[in-house]
Simulated assay, not measured.
Amino acid sequence: MKRLILIRHGKSSWELNVRDHDRVLLERGINDAHLIGKHLNSAFISSQQIWSSTAARALQTAVIVSEYIDYNLLSFKLKRELYTFDSSELISQIKSCTNDIDTLMVFSHNHGLTDTVNALGSNYFDNIPTTGAVIIEFNTTQWSDISNGQTIAHFFPKNLK
């Protein structure tokens, strides 16, 4: 059994004069990341491995959430390849996970993240909101074989406030 936790980065600002990759979280994004982290903790959801896009907003979201699930940051992986808006690229990265990892948490970007959730999970979502988390389980022992998973939960900040 493999468990995938996909989380979209928190709300960021378009108003700063920086590259897209360097955009940071707004206060709302920071607060929502704390909210999702607390909720994952209270639901006893943890991860053996956390991967994050190298974009500042994804990394900030990942670090905040990881504080709540008691994750050892020495195992944390930044992956430039997760700075993608394409689901096929995101799925390719997920399928490259080593099979000794049973639970993988990935922080990435839309539209690729929503498309990945819809391609791999059993529930359809029009849009995964910022800091939205979706958990999908797969009845396989190989990450390279994941497909047609079962969406077991989703947590969106607006539903937790």
Rank of each mutant, 00 (worst) to 15 (best):
I94N: 06
L113D: 05
N148L: 03
V65Q: 02
D100G: 01
I128M: 03
Y71L: 02
F107P: 04
Y68C: 11
T54L: 11
I30L: 14
V63M: 03
T103V: 13
I135R: 02
L40F: 12
D86Q: 09
V65T: 04
W51H: 01
L78A: 09
F44G: 14
L113Y: 04
S53P: 02
D70V: 05
F155G: 11
G149V: 00
N31P: 02
K95M: 07
D22S: 14
I101W: 04
T151H: 01
L40R: 13
Q60C: 12
S46V: 08
A33P: 06
S147T: 07
F138R: 07
D20P: 10
D102C: 11
D145P: 02
I36M: 08
V106K: 00
K2F: 06
R23A: 09
H34I: 14
H34P: 11
S52G: 12
I101N: 05
E15Q: 11
G37F: 07
N123I: 13
S92V: 05
N110L: 02
G121Q: 00
W143T: 04
W51C: 01
I5T: 02
D22A: 15
T141Y: 04
S53V: 03
I128H: 03
N118G: 09
K79P: 03
S92P: 05
E89V: 14
N159F: 06
D145T: 08
S144T: 07
S92F: 10
C97G: 09
E67P: 02
G112R: 08
L160V: 13
D20V: 07
T116H: 13
A58N: 03
D22E: 14
K77Y: 11
D22R: 15
K77R: 11
E15I: 01
G10C: 04
L160W: 12
G132H: 05
F138W: 10
L40V: 13
I69E: 01
S66C: 08
T131M: 09
Q60M: 15
N110A: 07
E81D: 07
G149E: 01
T131D: 10
G29E: 06
N118L: 08
F85W: 11
F138C: 10
L120T: 12
T141S: 07
N41D: 13
T140R: 01
K77Q: 10
L40A: 12
E81P: 10
Y71K: 04
G112D: 14
R3G: 00
S144C: 09
D115W: 04
I91S: 06
H154K: 15
L82T: 06
L16V: 08
K77T: 10
L90R: 07
N99Y: 03
T84S: 09
H111C: 14
G112L: 13
I94Q: 05
L74G: 08
H111P: 15
N148H: 08
K77D: 12
